[in-house]
Amino acid sequence: MRYWLFKSEPSTWGWQDQIDKGESGEEWDGVRNYQARNFMREMKLGDRGFFYHSQKEKSVVGIVEVCAEAHPDSTTEDDRWDCVDIKAVRGFTQPVTLDQIKTDPRLEEMILVKNSRLSVQPVTREEWVTICALGQTEAD
C-alpha cells in the first residue's frame, strides 16, 4: 500500500462532501497539473490518502481510500487528464495543521513542506504514521 495527500479547497469540496458520497466515493477530478496527474496514475485500489483542507484551514482532516484506479477525467474532453476515485475512511480526531507539519522535524522532508502548491502528492509511511499520531487517529 502507498500513501498520498489530496488537497481541496473546502469551499469547493470539503471533508463533509467526501463523507456524504459514501462507499461509492467520488472522482478526484479537475486536476490540471502533470505531476499530480502522474501520481494519480500510480495509485492502486486500497491506497490511502490524507484529505487536506487548503486555503484558510490548511490542515489534514481525514483519511481517504482509492476506490477506482486512474481513468479519464469526466470533467474534460481532453484525453491528457486522468483521475482516481476516493472514498472517506475516517476523520481525524484532531486536525493537523500545516504549521504543525512545518515545525515537526520528522516531517521536514515532506513534499507538503517543500512544494505546498502540488494538489496530489505522495506521503512516506513514516510521514503517514507521524501525522496520524499528531491527529490522534489510527494509522491503519
Rank of each mutant, 00 (worst) to 15 (best):
C132W: 06
A68G: 10
I101Q: 06
R90V: 10
G25A: 09
L98K: 14
V61Q: 08
D29K: 10
K56I: 00
G22P: 07
V61C: 13
R32N: 03
L112V: 03
K21N: 10
T97V: 12
C83A: 06
N38L: 07
I63L: 12
F39D: 05
M110P: 01
I63M: 07
E109H: 07
I86D: 02
S8N: 11
C132Y: 09
Y34W: 06
W13Q: 10
Q35W: 01
I19G: 00
S74G: 12
C83D: 05
L45E: 10
F51M: 15
E127G: 06
K114L: 06
G62P: 03
I111R: 02
T103R: 12
P10H: 11
Q16C: 02
K58Q: 13
S116P: 01
Q121P: 02
D82E: 09
F92L: 14
R80F: 08
T130R: 10
P105W: 01
K114V: 00
I131H: 00
Y52D: 12
R37V: 10
E9T: 05
D104G: 01
V60F: 04
Y34I: 00
S119K: 03
V129E: 10
T75W: 08
E77D: 14
D73N: 12
L98D: 06
R37H: 02
L112H: 02
R80Y: 10
V123C: 05
M110S: 05
K58G: 01
F51A: 15
H53Q: 04
V123T: 11
L107T: 03
G30E: 04
S54R: 00
V64K: 03
P122G: 09
P95Y: 14
D29T: 10
K7A: 06
H71N: 11
E108D: 07
D78H: 09
E9A: 09
S11K: 09
C132G: 09
L112F: 04
I101N: 08
M43S: 14
T124F: 05
A88P: 09
H71Y: 13
K44N: 15
Q94M: 13
V31M: 03
K102T: 03
S8M: 11
M110G: 02
I111W: 00
